[in-house]
Amino acid sequence: MHLYSGRARTIESVVGVLILLIMIATAVGIYIISQDYNMARFGIASQEESQGDFTSVGKAETYNNDNLYEKIDGKAPMYQEAGFIKLDTQRFAAKSNSELGFEIYIYDMNNAKNAFSVYSRQKRADATDLGGLGAPASPDSLVSRGGSAFGYVAGNAICLSLGKNYVEMIGSAESNELVDGMKGIAKDLSAKFKPTEKDKIAELGYFPVVDTVAGSWKLQIDNAFGFDGLTDAYSALYKSGDKTVSIFFSKRRNADEAKTVAKNYYDFLITNGAKAISVDSEILKSAGASVVDFYGSFEMVFSTGIFVGGVHEANDKQAAEKAAEVLIGRLKEIND
């Protein structure tokens, strides 16, 4: 018997080849593993993050209440008073032209009302509303669907209110190409921050169905029109004949509180130099509305059910009264 027979040698070779195959498989496996990496694991985010036609430049930054002022300086208190949680920022440059780029600011405002409040209060005068975000076009649909996603373009900037997030994209130049690119990203973001049912702001639908200027809604969480007793005040522009006036309302806990707030606001106006004048409209008279002349513009305030409502800074008394009549009617409807 000779053990180093041909068979033994064959086995040796087969085992050898098998071992080498395992070795090669190991090498391939390791190479494959190495390809699937995420540098964020080491605390170092991937140097470039692609966003459509843009790539990220520099590091993403996060700011909290302690250091928000470092990024936006004097504007910080406005956000903080409205419930600011954190801000994420990141710069992007266009792949085609690195000169062209934008910086994105994503403010976590804790809830949709806070986000909408900072959005609406900063809305630029030359804003063009963005379609396709799921924002309802008419007050009618607002009542049934509620508002939760809003956006506009103004020059080089796009601003969005998406659920609890307020988003600003500030372009480096006023270029159509850039704005189109940013619009694409706005769309992606509206899908990413898809507002939920509880993000809906039903109050936006309480404005008169006809003649309310769509997209002109504003929400002041507190200190509305400089009066600290007026909180959660929604306002919007209303086409009263050929004039446009600003109408507002605030939902209170009960009718008594609404009455008190209306009275306090009236007193606040008088204390600050407004002069009481008579109300012409019978509807308004019966509703107990007050009109004052506030250094040339007209302010009107009333309460109906759980609502405080009124007209703010109207130039034309007639138009103001007409708008107030319609608003009272609408709010009564809602009350019922």
Partner: peptide, 16 residues
């Protein structure tokens, strides 16, 4: 070493 070039750490199982 920290970095994402192929000769840097990416996901090489350096502790294997």
């Amino acid at each position: 070493t920290v970095g994402e070039k192929f000769w840097q750490i990416r996901n090489w199982p350096v502790n294997w």
